[in-house]
Design a binder for these strands. Structure first.
Lengths: 222, 222
DNA sequence: CGGGCGATTGATTGCCTTCAAACGTGGTGG
DNA sequence: CCACCACGTTTGAAGGCAATCAATCGCCCG
């Protein structure tokens, strides 16, 4: 149930790619590639596009008044980001690793939503998810200690990126710290302690093997 | 532009009251009164209604796994809450003070949104605001110290409740602490320090007079 | 006047940050 | 092919800030 007819057949020049926003709601968008740390959009820029990650990882972030960076979320393959419905972006987005994203004109989405009930519901559903995530994150930041935060992070990212209990983290310790409201050192110490606990193994700093998922879940619940 | 015809004339039993969800979008709802600390709805209950505060104050809150309470937001006159579009409430709501709220059937809102473009936009706008607030709050919790948090809180609530630079707080120190991710004692110390700085005056613990708004704004920016 | 609850204040503890240094790995140029 | 440098990470030591523990205060209401 495509809201916009695919004018160009798929064998044409790779100018458009299909984006599935929600069940029964797809639109065409422009694929773009970004290098590591490349900016996708900046805070305050007009928000003309909405994006979906095809491969790689993206971070959305803001800066607090004292200049410290806060990462709002990491977006992996399939995630939609840049959907705030305002005139301009309230945060910026960068590629964490080499990444492919598809950009969809916001006006196109809005048009679709005003016609198609499925479309409107899909957008609301996305907003709802973002809101739930943001609140969960606020709870984490308000109430949990360093070890618990990192455990939650690993379990979250693990749900998305695991293959056989092994995770290849696309992001640095600095990224993790700015996401969890911790310093690089605190993140590193949390990793080290988990390694000593045999909760995880760390063949390299970006490669995590989950050895004792139960221990992590226990930490999460603390 | 009422989506539901007001069946009962206004001089009848006070069974319905108009709720303005957004510009050009109003529906009828049932007015209810709640006493201080009375539960409006609980976490996990079916979310059949959306509410608007008519008078008084409401808190929405969750409990973290270790049993600590986290207040997501305070809702004052005019605010809409309980809008998460899920099958059941992801948090609970209680009256902070004696409060009047109007309850609107969710099904009614959804019906309205599927017909009226204004309605759908109003709902999206509300979601967007909630999301922006939640993110702002996460930033606060992740990056700010105790004094800054309380300053931000006073400025926020001040924007809503001031009359001539004076605020009558409807909520206790415990509420403020659970909102800001601090203990009662830390909140109290922050208030005391502001009083010593002559940023504020505290004729009584719930009555705040803003003496030096600039000092508070400076703290906020720290 | 007495009881109870919320708020304040003080003393101490504990955790995270800060400051500092060493480690390891990947990439470059000799 | 190896030496060297740069950057991200780890580890250690010290300090700071909020939490915790504890006692007192003040107010409202009986």
């Amino acid at each position: 149930m495509q809201t916009q007819s695919t004018i160009a057949p798929s064998f044409c020049a790779p100018k458009t790619e299909t984006v599935e926003i929600g069940p029964g709601f797809s639109v065409a968008g422009i694929p773009i590639r970004f290098e590591r740390n490349e900016e996708i959009f900046g805070e305050g820029e007009p928000a003309d596009y909405v994006y979906q990650v095809k491969s790689g990882a993206v971070r959305t972030m803001r800066f607090s008044s004292d200049g410290r960076r806060q990462i709002l979320a990491f977006h992996l393959a399939g995630d939609v980001f840049g959907l705030e419905l305002g005139g301009e972006h309230a945060f910026s987005a960068e590629a964490v690793s080499k990444a492919e994203v598809v950009a969809v004109r916001r006006s196109q989405l809005e048009k679709a939503a005003s016609v198609d009930l499925n479309a409107a519901n899909a957008l609301l559903q996305l907003m709802r998810q973002s809101l739930a995530l943001a609140r969960e994150h606020a709870l984490l930041l308000a109430r949990k200690g360093a070890g618990e935060r990192v455990a939650v992070f690993l379990l979250q990212i693990g749900r998305r990126l695991v293959s056989g209990g092994e995770i290849d983290l696309p992001m640095s310790r600095a990224d993790i710290g700015d996401f969890l409201g911790l310093t690089i050192e605190s993140v590193s110490r949390a990793f080290s302690e988990m390694e000593h606990n045999h909760s995880i193994a760390l063949p390299s700093s970006r490669h995590v093997i989950m050895r004792d998922r139960r221990a992590l879940l226990q930490l999460e619940a603390a």
